[in-house]
Design a protein around this nucleic acid. Structure first.
Lengths: 220, 220
DNA sequence: ATAGAACCGAACCGTAACGTACGGTACGTG
DNA sequence: CACGTACCGTACGTTACGGTTCGGTTCTAT
């Protein structure tokens, strides 16, 4: 029934209808939190519970499918690292920072992280691992090549890319994620995101920028 | 029945027995996560459900009482800021950092933050606000005076104490809290905590340390 | 000693949600 | 046209847990 063409990874190819159902579940998850019921999802998606159970097997199956579906949607374009100079590196870092802040402050991200955190305690499913893979670790996978390219270009100076990445992560995110997860009202306006991105980037460069670049620090 | 003497804040004075019950609930919360039942708490605490309901009124009441009880236990001693020089400031910051890392990586903190995050979505109670108050905001309240004292002593340079604090928070915590909340195995050994504390402190001083102190940077 | 309060243990009730089954409909295929 | 498939809508069984009630026990005070 769902053997159209196999996707890249384990995510079984999803019918249009199934995607619509998962989108409905996602929307409901944002609204209602983890206490959403199968009947509510069925009603919202205009499908029957029987179909829900046939497709996803279980409530946890539906939840994981929903999380994976959302994760598959935020696949971002990689950044080219050709002709790397300080300006382009700075721009890349700022771009990463603002993208990341936009993601973690979005309603869906907050909702998904909430249910994943809630489920992480009782290890029934591995929602936490999924969110972690598509959140923090995906960011690391995408950012580390940029950092290493910056080091090879003599713009950055660090021993361990992981450590450098984690510092960048901390400088960008700070207390935003935990505050949002805990329900703190904290609207991240676009201007604030941009400002935080440049601030975090400047701080990161101050900490990990090479003392002597190939050209001067103000090269354009 | 519990009108001995009113406590400083809203936390009604608790009987020894009530504290024992809350400790049992806390232990159970760490083990079982949010899906702990009133019967389980009663059994663990060797008390009756009737008493539970009489004392705490509700399941949410029990939960909030448990969170507040734990919060009241981690009241840490304030740090004296007499004779502030770079060494003592550094020591204070490192102390804050290591204490904070120890707290957020503890089992009880992870468990409490998990349930608070889970409850933050559907605003039945304000567990999230409580945890936020006794976590991130309490840290800020305790650390800001130190930062401002450092600035007045000419050791630090910043415009907004809040911004400086948030940077310190990010440099210390980085991705630790979200990873632990999402179930990532990540044992923070004592040595790692110490190392992270001095690293974060050094980075913070590199970013916010005054360019020219009252005495030389190596004054002792 | 006795009355009453506080509390324990267990049984009980109501609700809510998971998971299943059944009837009905639309559509494609022999 | 008959038939099978996939699906919707809904009603049902079952389980689990929050909350309540009740009998029995211990402790304290008069």
């Amino acid at each position: 029934m769902l053997h159209s063409e196999p996707d890249i990874d384990g995510s079984e190819a999803l019918t249009e209808r199934q995607q619509a159902v998962l989108d409905a579940a996602l929307r409901l998850l944002v609204e209602e939190g983890d206490n959403l019921t199968m009947t509510a999802v069925a009603r919202r998606a205009s499908c029957s519970k029987e179909t829900l159970y046939k497709w996803f097997g279980d409530r946890d199956g539906l939840l994981t499918a929903t999380v994976q579906w959302q994760a598959s949607k935020v696949r971002v374009a990689p950044i080219d690292r050709k002709g790397l100079d300080l300006a382009s590196l700075t721009a890349s870092l700022e771009r990463f920072a603002s993208d990341w802040l936009r993601v973690i402050s979005s309603d869906t991200s907050v909702a998904l992280n909430r249910v994943a955190v809630g489920h992480a305690g009782s290890g029934k499913d591995d929602l936490g691992a999924i969110v972690l893979q598509n959140g923090r670790f995906a960011l690391a996978r995408r950012l580390k090549p940029v950092l290493e390219a910056g080091r090879e270009a003599g713009l950055l100076d660090f021993d361990d890319a992981e450590t450098a990445f984690r510092s960048f992560f901390g400088l960008v995110g700070r207390d935003v994620q935990i505050r949002l997860l805990l329900g703190d009202r904290l609207e991240l306006t676009e201007a604030a995101i941009g400002g935080d991105a440049v601030r975090a980037t400047q701080q990161f460069l101050a900490l990990y920028g090479a003392k002597t670049g190939p050209q001067g620090p103000r090269a354009g």
